[in-house]
Each structure stands twice: as structure tokens, then as C-alpha cells.
Design a protein around this nucleic acid. Structure first.
Lengths: 171, 171
DNA sequence: TATTGTTATACTCTATAACTATA
DNA sequence: TATAGTTATAGAGTATAACAATA
């Protein structure tokens, strides 16, 4: 009989050969989904949260610059910003020195959203780290930073924005 | 020219509030992409690798059972298996006791692919853990397992198979 | 002429739902 | 009648490429 001999689910990688790598992929996916649900309570997607944060960090960037950073095509970025602007979270302003540019600024409602996002991020961190004591969290953070550094992910690659690099479809 | 005032990229989460959670998301995405490129050298996608592994672990499961485990809809699973069967990696066999079932078995070329995947998984693990010494790898694995356990991810949720839970789009 | 932003078209991917065979 | 598998249709999401405005 077949009767599902082992009910253990199927990781995409052999747990024997790739323990840490698989755990990272699994937990990363989980963390991303959890964050997605959390910002959904603020009626935001992770990409929208990323844009608000980017604009908040450096107001006045123009669209193509932001699109490139978020890994979006310029054409997609237009509709993306349309929706956020329609909700009054960001403002487009023509750059007076070069009227081709549309510079983005945080609107008052956008700053309010940023405060909500900061709270959400804290709660998210707390939820993900549940089960670890403060020392362990520090140790884990340090190890993860080491790995990220070794992988040359020095700052941030904004997971979840791009689908797959078009130039990577090797072999 | 605007000259990109600060070259710092944009994480989707504030690095202040969510250090560990963000690192997990970032590294998980990175690990998944690296694995995707690696199995692409074997002309496989992560989902295909997952199916081969699932069939290898428990031969003779029928399609809907496998589809459910991999988080795919049955209809999508058909074309998915078609491609893998056409390449001679798996075999469909009608279950003689109940001819409605199509049971899946690994074909000889599929077993060969599994050996290649085992090698790839080892190399992948090594690449991801580069920069950590053996003790640190053990420590990191232990911490990650603790987190996974606390999140009730006891075994494996096969990241990268599903796009987003359809029932999760909460307000 | 070159570049930003925008729009329009086409394409890929996926799920929903109808259909066939078996029980 | 109910279930496994299959097929067909429709929908969402995306990128590529054409277009308009500004430099």
C-alpha cells in the first residue's frame, strides 16, 4: 500500500545536504509572508511599504531612479505610483530645473503611514524572534550579518519586488 | 544630473525595527535565487527539483496528493508533470486497484537527476555558508531551527512553489 | 538627438470551471 | 453520486515597445 508512508512535507532541497541554506529559504519565505499579512492590515503591500520608506529616506528622488532601486520596470512603476498617489500617500512634483523629472515626496498621510509601518516592523521583529531570548537574538543577528556580508548583500536587496532577473535564465 | 545622493539600497522593512526578520527575508530570497541558478544548470526549476525529491522519498504517490503537498492546483500540476515525464524523469502509472489514480515513480533518468541534485545541494550549502567556520554553521543551524520551531514550521514549506495564499488577502 | 515619463500592446502565468473516466 | 485527472477558458500581472514632452 502507499498510504502516504511519511507525512513529512517536501522541502525543495534535501535537508541532509543543505541544512542552513534550506532553513534560510524556508524562514525567509515565512518572514516575507508574515510581513505581507502585517502590512496588509495597513492596506499596503510590501512593495508599497518599500516605496514609502525609500521616499522617506531620500525625498525628491525621481521616478526612474526609484524604479531601478526597487527592481521595477519604469512602465510598471507608473501605475504603481498612481495608486499610491491616489491614496494621498506620496506627491509627484515636476522638477523645476528639469521638467522631465517627476520627483516624489511623502504626503502627510504618507508620514502617518510611515509611523504605522515602524510599529508594524517592530511587532514583526518580535513575532519572528519569539522563542529566542535577547542574547540569542543578538547572536543570530550577528551570524546572519556575517553571512549577508560574505554573500555581498551589504545593504539591502528588497526581497519580493522582482520576480526573477531576466538576464539570469542560464543553461 | 541628480547623481543619486545616497547609494544605499532600500530594504522593504526598516532596518532599525526589524533586524533579524529583515535579514531572514533578504538571505532567504538570496538563497532561493542562488538555488534556482544552481538547479538551472541541471535544466531544472526548484519546483521540479521538489517534485523529484518528493517522488524519490515516497514513490507511488498519486498526483493530487503531490500537488497538494507542493502547493499547486491540480490543473497546473498536470502540465507540470507532463514536462517532467516527457524528459523521462518520472513515470505515470495507473494504480491497478483504482484506475482513477495516476501514481508517480522515478524513472532511471530521474534517479540520475537526483544524484546531481544531491551534489548541487551540497555545493549550495557550502556556498551559502561561506564565511562561517564549522562551529558557527552549527550554531546558526541550531538557532534557525529554534526559530522555525517557534513559528510552527516543523518540517518544510517548500518556498517558491506558491505565489500567495488566495485565502489570505485580508483587508 | 537623448532622456523622462506615459501609454498601449502582447505575452506569460495561474486559477476556475467544465469534461471524461473510474469507482 | 463522488472523485482523480484532464482540458479549456478567462483573468491577473508583467514586460517590450511605441509615443509625447522636455532638454
Amino acid at each position: 500500500m502507499t498510504e502516504t508512508p511519511d507525512p513529512a512535507p517536501i522541502p525543495h532541497t534535501g535537508p541532509q545536504g543543505a541544512q542552513v541554506a534550506f532553513l534560510l529559504a524556508q524562514l525567509g519565505e515565512h518572514a516575507t509572508q508574515a510581513f505581507t499579512r502585517r502590512v496588509a492590515e495597513l492596506d499596503l503591500t510590501p512593495a508599497q511599504a518599500g516605496l514609502l520608506r525609500a521616499v522617506s529616506l531620500a525625498p525628491g528622488q525621481h521616478q526612474q531612479e526609484l524604479a531601478r532601486r526597487l527592481g521595477m520596470s519604469p512602465s510598471r512603476f507608473v501605475a504603481f505610483v498612481d495608486a499610491i498617489e491616489a491614496r494621498g500617500l506620496v506627491e509627484r512634483r515636476r522638477n523645476p530645473k528639469d521638467r522631465r523629472f517627476q520627483d516624489l515626496y511623502l504626503a502627510p498621510k504618507g508620514e502617518e503611514a510611515m509611523r504605522g509601518l515602524a510599529e508594524a516592523a517592530l511587532a514583526h521583529e518580535e513575532a519572528i524572534c519569539a522563542g529566542l531570548d535577547p542574547q540569542e537574538r543578538i547572536a543570530l543577528g550577528a551570524l546572519l550579518r556575517r553571512v549577508a556580508e560574505a554573500q555581498h548583500l551589504t545593504a539591502g536587496v528588497h526581497p519580493g519586488y522582482r520576480r526573477l532577473d531576466p538576464g539570469r535564465g542560464g543553461a
